[in-house]
Amino acid sequence: MAQVSSIAEEQASTPLSSSKSITLRISRYNPKHDDSSVFMEFTVPYQKWTTVLEAILDVKKHFDHSVAVRYSCRQATCGSCGMMINGKPKLACFTKISELNSDVITVEPMSNFPIIRDLAVKFERMFETHHKIKPYLIRDDTELESDAKEFLQSPKEVEQYIQFANCIKCGLCNSACPTMATDSSFVGPQALAQAYRYVADSRDKGKDSRLKMIDEPHGIWRCHFAGSCSQVCPKGVDPAMGIQLLRGYLLGFRS
């Protein structure tokens, strides 16, 4: 059963010239001793600019400090605060309450990631797959051994991969992906987009080894171009584009 609480208005961090408030439903679950999650409800005042993260922090500060949530930068840069907000994966620090057009906001831990507690999820598997695709430049010569101090690139060459270098490893794409929803071994859009980021980098020479790595049953072929990853990505990475371009190499459309 949901527990309902409201923050004493004079205590909220949101200036209370605001007459607007929402009901914030927070999923509470500790896998160590709970059988299932329960929702706790809080009435939280908000302004036009109040983010979902700020509302959660208000709850932590003024009502229940045990709510587990992970965050750091509060500006869509660290990738820590992904969660399901009204059923879709979003960054809590990058989602304003006013843009949700709802009097009730439900926050839950991101789908397709194991839960640590409440809203915090484990990223280990995503970091593992990210690491597996070798997210660094592969070359025989290195800057240290080479006479050249840097590897020059034209603006056009930079454009080939720069949007994919925007990835903040927030995991929203993996959470929205329909294949990730059922296949625990799928590489996932985050890692595949990063594979493309390095394959498309004119300085990199590791294309063949990366393509080999993703050309397996739970690799790139499990992507069916549903595009949900790109729709939720908060940094314009567009993983779906990267994955299709990457597949183009394997299908012989690109070289």
Binding site: E159, I162, G236, M241
Partner: peptide, 16 residues
């Protein structure tokens, strides 16, 4: 599916 480019806010995904 579109061409890679420098992303600009509000980051409309070119592939969609």
């Amino acid at each position: 599916v579109g061409k890679p480019a420098r992303p600009d806010y509000p980051y409309e995904p070119a592939s969609q």
